[in-house]
Computed example of a mutant assay.
Amino acid sequence: MTHAPTVPTLEPAFDVVVDLGPPADHGRTRAGHRRIIPIVGGAVSGGLDAEILAGGADWQLVRDDGAIEVDGRYSARTPEGELLYLQVRGIRTGPVDVLAALLAGDDVAPDRYYFRTVITIETDAAALAHFEHAVFVASCIRDADAVRYSAYRVT
């Protein structure tokens, strides 16, 4: 018997605000134009409540077409003291003038660019282990000094 794959759906999971420090522009490396944006704090709310800890970063590659490959990694701590490690990978792209405005820190409406990520979570906390057994996708917004996103569990 042949079965068809289940069609995934999206369930709202949690919301995130990641506070950012000033970027370090490493220029053109062998991998491409490298930028490292420090993560200085933030919060997770909704289906998961946690404080984002300073010390993470987004290791970005700015492609020749202006699109940015996102590779963010950071830790968060729940009110109970449980730690989570989040890795966020994705892409931010759009018209050249919009991407330039985002890089300059201008306020740009999120419908003018594409910013989507995949989030994976690691934890030693038994009560949060279900976050390790799911794939999450997010629709993101870039503010001047923060990234905001709503994460959805892919069923």
Rank of each mutant, 00 (worst) to 15 (best):
V88G: 13
R89K: 04
V70L: 15
T120I: 02
I119G: 04
A126D: 04
F14W: 08
D106F: 09
A76M: 03
I52A: 09
D106R: 15
A57D: 15
R30N: 08
P110T: 09
A109K: 11
Q87H: 15
P8C: 07
P95F: 11
D64I: 08
R28Q: 11
G55W: 06
Y113C: 10
Y152E: 12
I119D: 03
D64F: 10
I121N: 00
E132F: 02
A50P: 07
D111F: 05
D97L: 15
T78C: 02
P5C: 04
D106T: 06
Y74A: 07
S45E: 10
T155C: 13
R30D: 03
R35Q: 12
D58H: 05
P8V: 07
P8S: 04
V70M: 12
A50R: 02
A4D: 06
H33C: 09
D58S: 09
H3V: 10
R77D: 02
R116D: 03
I39A: 06
R63V: 09
E51F: 06
P8L: 03
R92F: 02
G46V: 11
L48G: 00
A138G: 04
V98I: 13
L84Q: 00
D143W: 07
A50Q: 01
S150H: 14
D106K: 11
G72N: 03
V108P: 09
A24N: 13
P23K: 12
E82R: 01
R92C: 03
P22N: 05
Y85T: 08
R112E: 10
H3I: 09
I68H: 12
G32D: 08
T123D: 01
A54K: 02
V70H: 13
E11W: 00
P95S: 15
P5H: 04
L128Q: 00
I39W: 00
I141T: 15
I39Y: 00
G55E: 13
T117R: 01
F14V: 08
G21T: 10
G47Y: 11
A13I: 06
V118F: 02
V135N: 05
G46F: 12
A57R: 13
G32H: 04
D49F: 07
E80D: 00
A50F: 03
T2D: 14
E82G: 02
G81P: 00
A126F: 03
R89D: 04
R73C: 05
I52G: 13
D65W: 14
H3C: 13
V40C: 14
E51C: 05
Q60D: 14
H133P: 01
G90A: 04
G32M: 07
V16K: 07
P95V: 12
I36Y: 10
G66R: 14
D107R: 14
I52P: 15
M1A: 09
V88C: 02
V16C: 14
R112H: 09
V108Y: 05
G21M: 08
E69I: 13
E69N: 13
A146C: 11
Y149R: 12
A138H: 01
P8M: 03
R92D: 05
I52N: 14
P8W: 01
E80T: 01
A126N: 07
P110V: 10
G41Q: 06
L10D: 04
V108N: 04
D25H: 11
R116Y: 03
G47L: 09
R35H: 07
G66C: 13
D58E: 10
P110C: 13
A4S: 11
V7L: 13
D49W: 08
G32F: 01
A57P: 05
T29V: 08
Y85E: 05
E132R: 02
D64P: 12
